[in-house]
Design a protein around this nucleic acid. Structure first.
Length: 463
RNA sequence: GGUCCCAUCGUCUAACGGUUAGGACAGAUGGUUUUCAAUCAUCUAAUCGGGGUUCGAUUCCCCGUGGGACCGCCA
């Protein structure tokens, strides 16, 4: 059985993480079934569609590793076809022209609101026998929706869903200016693209009942449908553009890895036994619509961070370094080529304390930057005694030709003995002098990750 | 308000109608360490309520309750 699916966002705003997940599910299924995954930009709303959003959508998908087959399909390029289908529906009696003015509709809505009854278009022009066609109003074209009976869809996630036909109004398929609406365009395009599986957010469920009627009127094959539950914000409602960290860009900025986010999104609303970490290959092999739950799930940043931490600790270190390099250049300060070697060599301990690339960057800052600033509260910890200790350290350190773990350890141990202190008594002031903070990597790691000159320079500055 | 959907630890979720209801994240406690972190061990924590069906319901059915989505000449 062939499997052709698509992701069809509208470029009227930045793609958020819910959309990315929908795209991911589609893509995974296409890969699993050796089918096709297309990207369709639904830009028939000329007013709100923006080129920059189209770019953002494609960039987001690319970043997380979702690549579509063929060129992206631009819906507005197919408007002519959509209109043809509209006139065919008109000709066959499945649609009709409605001459209600916008004011007339508005008045009806207000009236319904006052009476507390739900508004549906009153189908005034469905049977225009006794009506005089006004000459001053351009009509819209409405689809002649079923009035009686029930409709059923077999949803691959939700199971059977039934509705009473009469609640579906005669929806507009051609606007007053003759342009097609989403309901029409989506169906025509899905048909032309030979889409076999429509996997989209739960918020489209009602649309399916409208669109199904167009398929039936055109005697076209109806694709399978799957409506996946929406992602909710921590407040429990549909994710909106206002919610924090909801676009891919927000996560990139935080230093989240693509694989980590992919893994998180995969597990949001779907599970495979007790498995938590999925390689790309595993997700393709194991993903299945049957495993998708029916209830919406909340976005949980701590979980994302935790998965990110896992990936940071487990991916190849050279690869991690490259990611860090690009991250630093884009969002922080470019790592000077003279420092690259040292950062790369130190990454195994720099990453240890990190949940994000930004954390690694912060941990690396003492290597990356030539001038470190000591925090005021840490400066206080440098009393005369500790200053004395580190200047003595400096003196001895200077005499070493090739600093290594053993000879540094000896110096420190001697100092501990001499000053009758513990490791902290020596290590803490050294760390403050070298890193600018009492928090940081292990002291041997710090010293060995800097050049001898740099160590000397930083300690000398203290006194 | 109408229509539809959903309901297991705080969160993501597992459990052919038979499990001491499992795992992960978060949280708590303790050990270790050179600070922070990490790590290891342990612990806390859930089947929304009420009726059925059944020898037996988290699981099937009904009714409540709660949450959500949709109700555009947006997509």
């Amino acid at each position: 059985m062939s499997f052709i699916c698509r992701f069809a966002p509208s470029p009227t705003g930045p793609l958020h993480i819910g959309g990315v997940r929908t795209a991911l599910f589609n893509w995974l299924l296409a890969k699993k079934n050796k089918g096709k995954f297309y990207l369709r930009i639904e830009d028939t709303d000329k007013e709100r569609s923006k080129e920059e959003f189209k770019k953002q959508i494609i960039d987001s998908l690319t970043w997380i590793g979702i690549n579509h087959d063929g060129e992206e399909y631009i819906q507005s390029k197919n408007i002519k076809k959509h209109k043809e289908i509209a006139s065919e529906l008109l000709k066959k009696g499945y649609a009709y022209k409605c001459y209600c003015s916008e004011e007339e509709i508005k008045k009806q809505k207000e009236k319904c609101k006052k009476q507390g009854i739900p508004y549906t278009y009153n189908r005034k022009w469905r049977d225009p026998k006794d009506l005089k066609v006004p000459t001053n109003i351009k009509p819209v074209v409405r689809f002649k929706s079923k009035i009686t009976g029930e409709s059923k869809i077999k949803d691959l996630v939700q199971g059977e869903v039934n509705i009473t036909n009469s609640i579906i109004e005669d929806f507009v398929i051609l606007r007053q200016d003759g342009s097609p609406t989403y309901q029409l365009s989506a169906v025509v395009d899905d048909h032309e693209m030979k889409i076999t599986h429509v996997i989209r957010g739960d918020d489209h469920k009602i649309n399916t009942f409208k669109q199904k009627q167009i398929y039936e009127a055109m005697k076209w094959d109806i694709p399978e449908f799957a409506h996946i539950p929406l992602i909710h914000s921590d407040k429990g409602s549909k994710l909106s553009k206002r919610d924090m960290a909801s676009t891919i860009g927000d996560y990139i900025k935080k230093g989240i890895l693509a694989d980590a986010l992919r893994n998180y999104l995969l597990r949001l609303g779907w599970a495979y036994k007790d498995k938590e970490i999925f390689t790309l290959e595993e997700s393709i092999n194991l993903f299945d619509l049957k495993g998708v739950g029916k209830s919406p799930s909340k976005l949980d940043l701590t979980r994302i961070l935790s998965i990110n931490e896992y990936y940071i600790k487990n991916i190849d270190e050279k690869q991690l370094f490259d990611l860090l390099k690009r991250f630093a250049e884009k969002f922080r300060t470019k790592i000077d080529s003279s420092k690259e070697k040292s950062v790369l060599e130190s990454i195994s301990f720099l990453k240890n304390k990190a949940k994000t690339l930004d954390d690694i960057y912060c941990n690396s800052e003492y290597i990356i930057k030539d001038n470190i600033e000591i925090l005021a509260e840490d400066k206080k910890l440098l009393d005369s005694n500790s200053k004395k200790i580190i200047s003595e350290f400096l003196e001895k350190f200077n005499k070493i030709d090739n600093p290594n773990r053993e000879n540094i350890e000896k110096i420190i141990n001697d100092l501990i003995k001499k000053y009758n202190t513990n490791f902290k008594g020596v290590g803490q002031p050294l760390r403050i002098a070298l890193v600018g903070s009492r928090f940081g990597p292990g002291i041997y790691n710090i010293i060995l990750s800097l050049t001898k000159n740099e160590v000397v320079k930083r300690i000398s500055k203290i006194n």
